[in-house]
Nucleic acid binder design. Structure first.
Lengths: 203, 203
DNA sequence: ATTAAATGTTACTACTGGGTAACATCGAGT
DNA sequence: ACTCGATGTTACCCAGTAGTAACATTTAAT
């Protein structure tokens, strides 16, 4: 009980009290889904962490599955925003965008919070093919791979499609193994490993 | 009901009736955990699929969590057996072992059944750090990576540790994205992608 | 045949979790 | 002041699930 109430107050701080309940619920869901998994937390705990109750939650979201889908959608738009940010930071330099993206993933992974990791995690937790979150994940995954292919093509490196898939799987693999192994996990050197692959595609 | 009884009979066929109940339960658990996820199926359904009941299940396994751990342990010994098999098939040829392993993964992934995939999947479904299956997964993951590093070192390729981690993440990534994308998933070309990386490590 | 161990059967407890109904309360706008 | 919409509160229902108790049944060993 002590731990629960403490965590609750933490999340209540995190969900700035000025926000409307829907946003607070999404913030709480984001934190709790990421920490405990999509199946590891109940709507009651989410509502409580958001400083509200189950009824208002169900007035804003038809079901828990749709709340999960909305949570996943939020993660996808966040990663899309990161790509846009990288594009403006390194205009007309696709290789720099890729490198910055890799560094960002490695850095964020060190701190444990990485939206792509949460997406990959949820993707393997949702076993039901009819879950509304599945199409969100699938669409994002496809779009993400296409983005990588496009950047690799524009970078002028050799065999861009193959390079894109290699980087894609490398990153997904690091996300998957992130929580299984400890500090010496292979994902820590993600940037180095990716750099090696990229270098091998230099003409 | 029809679907359920049909599935039940299928699994009852799969669990050869001559086997002792413990083995039948493990077989059923293997099938159902892989299909529905560790949290997506109950002990009752497993016992029924094994042609027995919940009581005998609990006479052989202390709890569901320990049954899950035993299921995971079975997956790990299976993958270890595969490595042994590859070693005898290609003695004193570590590179051939690695290649055969990659082909095997790609081939098994086509048919949907791959023990490593089930391990990776379960790893992301078990969010509780105290779950008895966690240490099984962690031990296996470490051992698996060590095996890869050892083989890469023995293969005489350049930067063997880096190559091992690249291949490791590549495979884990393909396992993670296996169920998210369809037929044109990047994991289908896993062997090709890995071959490219291996080639880039040729001296 | 008898015994003992393993297994089957039924029924039950306790708990969790998704989802809803009814009513109370508050807050802003008229 | 009044109203109406959004929110809070409480109390439920229902289904599923982990786990157990008690007793019946089979099976094999002696």
């Amino acid at each position: 009980m002590d731990a629960k109430s403490a965590e609750q107050s933490v999340h209540r701080n995190a969900s700035e009290r000025g926000l409307p309940p829907r946003e607070r619920i999404l913030l709480a869901a984001r934190a709790l889904f990421a920490r405990h998994g999509v199946h590891g937390i109940g709507v009651d705990a989410i509502a409580e962490a958001a400083g509200t109750n189950k009824m208002t939650l169900y007035r804003h979201f038809e079901s828990k599955d749709l709340l999960v889908a909305e949570y996943l959608r939020g993660l996808t738009v966040e990663t899309s925003a990161i790509w846009c940010e990288l594009e403006t930071a390194h205009p007309d330099d696709p290789l720099a965008q890729i490198n910055a993206w890799l560094c960002r993933i490695a850095h964020h992974a060190e701190h444990g919070n990485e939206s792509g990791c949460a997406l990959a995690s949820a993707s393997m937790q949702i076993t039901d093919p009819a879950h509304p979150g599945r199409k969100v994940i699938e669409a994002h995954t496809r779009q993400h791979r296409d983005k990588l292919i496009q950047l690799c093509r524009a970078s002028g490196l050799a065999e861009p499609e193959q390079l894109a898939d290699q980087l894609f799987l490398l990153v997904e693999g690091s996300r998957a193994t992130w929580q299984t192994v400890g500090d010496d996990h292979p994902g820590a050197a993600l940037a180095t490993l990716a750099a090696g692959i990229i270098a091998s595609h230099r003409r």
